[in-house]
Structures are given as structure tokens and as C-alpha cells.
């Protein structure tokens, strides 16, 4: 991990005894979880298990009610400046892409680096074009999001998050809204990113992807982390009944 700058050594994300409620509904129960720098983690579980919520706590799109969350040495609380500082370091990719429809692809990528990182415009554009090349979509730079296919939009969304040069990337079901033939082009980009050493948390049911890149698979159910393990162990020999049931359901079809 010597290539990481800043606060070295310790985990980049650490959650201790985290609880979260939506009204009466107890979404997350006593989550203890940490992510080392450079680690790639796949989070899976049935719908309603709290996996998306857990990822969204990390950049404070949701707030927790109990416990502590420390990201890159900064504790998440109500302090707006601290939250913005963490968001600069944590990139996020959404299920519905959420590109800005009134801006071109290039403008989507340039916006945050210039306004948040105060990067000169020319430099931000160079970086953007380089990233668009990496997700193999550079020729679409001047189009608007609505003119692209779902797979292309999601690759642009990945490039947009990378343009902030984040230390961690969160993926919240990045391929769930895609037509089947477009899933691979997005997963290929994510696999490449993993090989380059990015720290990644991916909520997904793409088990092939998990086997290829994950250091750990985290299985969640009813707001708890039920089981954690290396992908080959988790998929071939899950230890809990809930994980066995879940795997039989998603692999069964």
C-alpha cells in the first residue's frame, strides 16, 4: 500500500456498532466493518437487506443514528465541511447513472474537478478526455447523456466519479438497470479499475465479477452482516443457512 498518500496504514473505512433506522424500520443493526486500502469488496444479499444503505452511509447520502464511521481518518458527523471533505475522496456510481442531463458528457466530467478541486479548466478537460478514453467512450464527449445507451451512460458515470481522483469508489448496483447485453461493457471497466489498485465497494449480484476481483464477499440479510469470506469459499461453501438459501436463489435461474 506504499502508493497511497496521506494517512497510511490504517483502514480507509471503519464502521463500529453502526445502527440506522428509517422511521420505525431498523435497516442496519450493529454493523462492524472495515475496509483496508486497495481492498475490493463485493456486498450482496436479498433486497431490503440494507446493503445499499450501508454503502450510502459511507459518503453520508444517509446518516446513521448510532455508532461511529471513520473514512480516511475523518469521522462522519453533522459537520458539513467534514462531509464535503469525505465526499471529495469517495466516488460513487449509482444504479440509475444520474448523469446531469443538461450538460454534455465532457461537462459532466469537468464540473466537479473545476468547482470542487479548483482544477484549471484545461487540465480538467485533459483529465476528462483521458478518463473517457479509459472507459472507451472518448468519441462521445460532446453528446448529451440522453443520446447514449445505458451501458455508455454508466461508463460515463464511472469516469465522472474518477475525475475527482477518489481514494475509494462505491458502486450501488451499477448493472441492475442495464439491458443484459450492456452489463459486460460496464463490468469490464470495473475489472480494469480493480486491477489498477482502486479501493472498491460494490453492491452487486454479479457473481462472476465477485469471483474475478473481490478480496472479500460480504453477505447481508435483514440489516446484519451475516457472513464474510473469500469469494471461492463463500460461493462453494457458505457457512450459514441464510447465505445458502440466497445463493440457491440467485444461481438457480
Amino acid at each position: 500500500m506504499a502508493n497511497d498518500s496521506g494517512t497510511n496504514g490504517g483502514p480507509i473505512i471503519e464502521m463500529r456498532g453502526v445502527d440506522k433506522w428509517f422511521g420505525e424500520f431498523h435497516v442496519l443493526r450493529g454493523i462492524d466493518f472495515s475496509v483496508a486500502r486497495g481492498e475490493k469488496i463485493v456486498i450482496c444479499g436479498p433486497s431490503g437487506s440494507g446493503k445499499s444503505t450501508m454503502v450510502r452511509l459511507i459518503n453520508r447520502l444517509e446518516s446513521h443514528q448510532r455508532g461511529t464511521i471513520v473514512v480516511d481518518g475523518i469521522e462522519l458527523a453533522d459537520d458539513v465541511k467534514a462531509i464535503e471533505a469525505i465526499r471529495r475522496e469517495v466516488g460513487m456510481v449509482f444504479q440509475q447513472f444520474n448523469l446531469f442531463p443538461h450538460l454534455t458528457v465532457l461537462q459532466n466530467l469537468v464540473l466537479a474537478p473545476t468547482w470542487v478541486r479548483r482544477m484549471p479548466k484545461r487540465e480538467a478537460e485533459e483529465l476528462a478526455m483521458q478518463l473517457l478514453g479509459r472507459v472507451r467512450i472518448a468519441e462521445q464527449a460532446d453528446k448529451y447523456p440522453a443520446q447514449l445507451s445505458g451501458g455508455q451512460q454508466q461508463r460515463v458515470a464511472i469516469a465522472r466519479a474518477l475525475a475527482m481522483r477518489p481514494k475509494v469508489m462505491l458502486f450501488d448496483e451499477p448493472t441492475s438497470a442495464l439491458d443484459p447485453e450492456m452489463i459486460k461493457e460496464v463490468l469490464d471497466v470495473m475489472i480494469e479499475l480493480a486491477r489498477e489498485g482502486m479501493t472498491m465497494l460494490v453492491v452487486t449480484h454479479e457473481m462472476g465479477f465477485a469471483r474475478t476481483v473481490a478480496d472479500r464477499v460480504v453477505f447481508m440479510d435483514r440489516g446484519e452482516i451475516v457472513e464474510t469470506g473469500k469469494p471461492e469459499e463463500f460461493f462453494s461453501a457458505p457457512t450459514t443457512d441464510r447465505a445458502k438459501l440466497f445463493l440457491s436463489q440467485i444461481l438457480g435461474h
Binding site: E84, R87, L99, H102, A112, V116
Partner: peptide
């Protein structure tokens, strides 16, 4: 404006006013 637009702007670290001026209000 869908909630995803707010979340995408926030996830990029935009402050409240930048989020509004650059992303939400133009739309």
C-alpha cells in the same frame, strides 16, 4: 427534479449552493 440528481451532485462533493446553481436550478 429526481432525487438522483441531488445525490449525484452531493456525492461529487458539491456544496449546497453549487449543487443548486450548477445542477438543480438550470434543470
Amino acid at each position: 427534479i429526481p432525487n438522483g440528481q441531488y445525490e449525484a451532485a452531493e456525492a461529487l462533493g458539491l456544496s449546497y449552493w453549487r449543487k443548486m446553481l450548477l445542477i438543480i436550478l438550470p434543470q
